[in-house]
């Protein structure tokens, strides 16, 4: 047998470690916070913190494509909101008098702030997904979920989705090519909306059928690889938890539970309609935000020192 200079420590370097899972939890908290709060200051802070993470890991180029998409969606949101949402007390510009039968185009400060909040929220959610996709090793995530004895049906579901979406994307591109060859376009067709919608609807059927077939095959593959064979699953990689990891875990728990508590008691509440809350933040709010910011900074510092543990292409 060929001599292989591999030992368990060497092999374990081929995969990440507990930090992937902690980053996953951290991003999940951001995801939840983005939906819990309307307060623009909180959202701006979350956004800035995500930008800091992106800069630390030097993944700006990979995120740039996502940013372009967000920009397009934002413009679209702004337009829709301006045209269809006339709410708000402070009118900046109005096209028709309210007595008219037609929809009113009313641009209000509240409307603009509300849209801005939604755009920020979208940015946070999509950036969380972006960072997750780029930095987190799926293998690590699955392994840790298994170690945590998450029910194997949930892990199966996660495995399926991790494999499912890239394959769905590939199938969609394939169908797009076929339709281009048939001279149908999946791109929006301004001239014939009805046929456009019909063609898109028709594509869904083969796309879903193929995806379903693929999920069945992935589930079969899990079965033939003894997934769910026994409750005593071995974890080849032993995760060494350092003092910093423990502090990070405590930090994550504090951050998560603290923010949810504040949300329950309504401390960081902010309302946009009918008019923007007069006082955005109280002194207590400010103190709380500062505290959470410090917690966050520690976590970011912790992740930045663990850069080498994330996916190897970002270390190159």
């Amino acid at each position: 047998m060929q001599d292989i200079a591999l030992n368990r420590e060497n092999l374990s370097q081929s995969s990440g470690n507990i930090k992937s899972f902690l980053l996953f939890l951290y991003l999940s908290e951001y995801f939840v916070f983005a939906f819990l709060f309307d307060n623009p200051i909180i959202l701006v802070l979350l956004f800035i913190l995500l930008i800091i993470i992106i800069c630390i890991f030097k993944i700006q180029k990979k995120i740039a494509m996502l940013s372009r998409m967000i920009l397009i969606i934002s413009l679209f949101m702004m337009l829709i909101s301006t045209l269809l949402n006339p709410s708000g007390d402070h009118v900046i510009f109005s096209l028709w008098e309210p007595k008219h039968f037609f929809p009113i185009i009313n641009i209000t400060i509240e409307n603009l702030v509300g849209t801005g909040i939604n755009i920020l929220r979208l940015c946070i959610v999509l950036y969380c997904f972006g960072i997750f996709n780029i930095l987190i090793d799926n293998d690590d995530l699955l392994r840790i979920l298994m170690k945590l004895h998450i029910p194997h049906k949930i892990i199966l579901l996660i495995t399926l989705s991790l494999k499912f979406f890239p394959l769905l994307n590939r199938d969609f591109n394939h169908l797009q090519d076929i339709n281009k060859l048939r001279r149908y376009s999946i791109e929006p067709n301004k001239k014939n909306r009805r046929s456009d919608i019909r063609i898109k609807g028709e594509i869904l059927l083969p796309l879903l059928t193929n995806s379903l077939e693929r999920s069945i095959q992935i589930a079969q593959a899990l079965d033939v690889r003894a997934f769910g064979y026994s409750k005593k699953r071995t974890n080849f990689f032993q995760y060494k938890i350092s003092k910093f990891d423990i502090i990070a875990i405590i930090n994550l728990i504090l951050l998560g539970s603290g923010v949810i508590h504040l949300w329950i008691i309504g401390l960081l509440e902010f309302s946009v309609y009918p008019s923007i809350s007069s006082s955005i933040l109280t002194q207590l709010d400010l103190f709380t935000i500062l505290f959470l910011f410090v917690l966050n900074l520690f976590l970011i510092l912790y992740f930045s020192f663990s850069k080498k543990d994330f996916q190897e292409e970002f270390n190159d």
Partner: peptide
């Protein structure tokens, strides 16, 4: 290692 981990073999 995926299959072997599922089968519960020792490291």
């Amino acid at each position: 290692i995926f299959g072997l981990e599922n089968l519960g073999f020792s490291r």
